[in-house]
Structure formats: structure tokens, C-alpha cells
């Protein structure tokens, strides 16, 4: 009995020691590896245009002078707006699902899984990695990504201000002027559209409804497509959407169907993810009381369109959609 216990303990102590030793030896190797990496980086610092910028998490990031291969998953909108092609683009489901609305520009860019596995990132040999939010590098993944390439975290949390993001990315890519220009152009276009819409529909309420199999979502008036239509284009949100926005913090919040039935919207934009056609949807008696439905002012866009995204390109497309629908 005793011997049995003893041998078991010894065996396991041995195992632990082996693990410990292997861990120690490998970690010392790691440090040499990173030493190598940093020496190779210091040779690059001699180039005059390389800069050190502080990112949203407070990391000092050495930005290469002229990055050629950039990975900026879910930030592609901003890159496209600045005329930069990324090395790989955000995707899910083995690259079969991408951000459709950007495919005019990103058609030939290979895909990378949205969770950005280290080895997948590495296979593109990027020289700059842009991370959308701090959540993507949770668990000190930052350290590991930055061993592949300088890694810059754009926003500290789920920050929905795309203007700030665009300006920051412009700064990182040495394209601050271009970023400002994009914003100016956007504001100009939004202002023109706003004036036209003001003449056309005044303060008649306009609703955005994302229709899924079981529920209906409305955007917060200050976020996502709500910010574009109710902010930039100055449209009036129906009572129910304003009410939901007061406490609903997410980009999109579920709307009670009773509130939908009572909605006083004169114009309705449907982001359709339901699998039924607009006509079938509008036959539902719950929808029948909405003024927009009575007057035939319901416009439908697929959920693959830019309505569920945010960024200069996405928002411009949304504005185009609104104009072509309402001023038709």
C-alpha cells in the first residue's frame, strides 16, 4: 500500500518536474526569439519616416514607414475609404461569408477567419496589424500578435464612432489628410442629402426595421444606421424608436411587436433577414396600421447591404439607398 502511494507520488512529481523544465527551457528560448525580432526591428528604425504611436490600449507601437501588407479585420471599410488594400479580409464560415457591400473594392483580397488565429495571420506575413477593439486581443494576445507584426489597437471598447476610427487609421497609415478629405466629402454629401430630404419629407417620421425570423430590431438613434439617418440626414425617428434608444444600449434593440403595430412611421426601410418577401411581410395585419404601409412607402434592402455596418463607405451607400428610395 505504502509503496504504491510512494511510487505514484514519485511518478507524478517527475511528471511535474518535466513539465516545469520544459516550460522554463522553452520560455528562455522565447525570449531569444523576441530578441531577434526586436533587433531586426531596430535596423528598420533608422528609416526616417517610421513613427511610434500610442494605441487605444496605451501600447507604444512602431509603425513601419510604408506598410505593404496590412491586416485590419472588420476595419476594411476605413481602408477602402482611404484607398488602401488590405492583405486579407474579414470572413466567417471558411471565407464563404464576407462583407458583401465592400466587394467592389475587395473582390480579389483573400479571406481570413474573423477570430484571427495566429498562424493564419502569420501566413500573410503582414507588416502591420490593426485591431478593431481591445476585446480582440483579450488574454494578452496582444503580445503574441505583436511578435508577428506591429499591432495597433484602434479603439478601447465597442466604440461606434467611425469618424474617430477613420482618423486614427488615417494617422497610422500616414494618410491623415486623406481621412479628413473623406470626412469632408461625406459631410458635404450628407448635408446635400439632408437639405433635399428636408424639402421632400420634412419631419415625417422614418423607421428603420431589421426583420428577422422571430423578432424585429430597431437601431439606437445614435448608433449604426440610426446615426446616419437620424443624425447625419436629420430624419425624424418614430416615437417607439426614440423610446427604445433611451435605454437600449446595443446598436440594434428588439422592438415589441405591439409598438410596431402602433408605429406612426410615414417611411419604412426594411433590412430583410426573414426569408419572406416584402409583400408577404406587409400582408401581416400587424403591419397594416403603419402609415408607410398604407401609402406604399416601404423600401426593402437585403441584410447583405451596408445597413448593418458602419463606416464611410457603408454610410455613403446607405445615403444613396435612402435618396433613391425616397426621391424616386
Amino acid at each position: 500500500m505504502n509503496r504504491k502511494v510512494k511510487s505514484a507520488i514519485i511518478l507524478n512529481l517527475l511528471l511535474c518536474v518535466i513539465l516545469l523544465v520544459s516550460a522554463c527551457s522553452t520560455s528562455s528560448n522565447t525570449s531569444t526569439a523576441s530578441d531577434n525580432a526586436s533587433t531586426s526591428e531596430t535596423t528598420e528604425t533608422t528609416q526616417p519616416t517610421e513613427r511610434i504611436l500610442e494605441d487605444a490600449m496605451g501600447n507604444e507601437v512602431e509603425i513601419p514607414a510604408n506598410p505593404q501588407s496590412i491586416i485590419a479585420s472588420y476595419l476594411e471599410d476605413h481602408l477602402v475609404a482611404l484607398g488602401v488594400k488590405p492583405a486579407a479580409q474579414w470572413s466567417i464560415a471558411d471565407g464563404t461569408s464576407v462583407q458583401n457591400y465592400l466587394q467592389d473594392s475587395l473582390n480579389e483580397i483573400p479571406t481570413i477567419p474573423s477570430d484571427l488565429p495566429f498562424e493564419a495571420v502569420m501566413s500573410f506575413s503582414p507588416d502591420l496589424i490593426l485591431m478593431d477593439t481591445a476585446g480582440m486581443v483579450e488574454g494578452d494576445k496582444y503580445e503574441q500578435y505583436s511578435k508577428i507584426a506591429p499591432t495597433y489597437v484602434v479603439a478601447s471598447d465597442e466604440d461606434n464612432d467611425w469618424r474617430k476610427k477613420l482618423l486614427r487609421i488615417g494617422e497610422v497609415l500616414n494618410k491623415s489628410d486623406e481621412a479628413k478629405e473623406v470626412l469632408e466629402n461625406y459631410d458635404l454629401k450628407a448635408k446635400e442629402a439632408k437639405e433635399q430630404l428636408e424639402q421632400e419629407i420634412g419631419t415625417k417620421p422614418v423607421a428603420i426595421l431589421w426583420v428577422t425570423a422571430k423578432s424585429i430590431y430597431v437601431p439606437n438613434v445614435n448608433l449604426s444606421s440610426g446615426a446616419v439617418l437620424y443624425g447625419d440626414l436629420g430624419l425624424t425617428a418614430p416615437q417607439a424608436i426614440q423610446e427604445v434608444s433611451e435605454t437600449g444600449t446595443a446598436n440594434w434593440n428588439a422592438l415589441s411587436l405591439e409598438k410596431l403595430a402602433e408605429m406612426e412611421a410615414e417611411y419604412v426601410f426594411i433590412v430583410n433577414g426573414k426569408g419572406v418577401t416584402k409583400d408577404e411581410l406587409l400582408q401581416d395585419p400587424v403591419w397594416a396600421g403603419i402609415p408607410a404601409v398604407k401609402n406604399g412607402r416601404v423600401y426593402e434592402y437585403d441584410k447583405q447591404a451596408s445597413w448593418l455596418y458602419t463606416g464611410a463607405i457603408a454610410n455613403l451607400q446607405m445615403i444613396d439607398n435612402v435618396m433613391e428610395s425616397i426621391l424616386k
Partner: peptide, 21 residues
Amino acid sequence: IHYDVAQDISFWYAGGVAGVK
């Protein structure tokens, strides 16, 4: 997780009888 539909599924299951027709 692979097809990014986890939230849709959760909403479907947590929905209760709210949207019943």
C-alpha cells in the same frame, strides 16, 4: 460559432411566446 449565427439562435430560443402568430 462557425457560421456566426449563435446570437440568432439564442434570440430564437429566448423569445418565448412573444412573436407567436
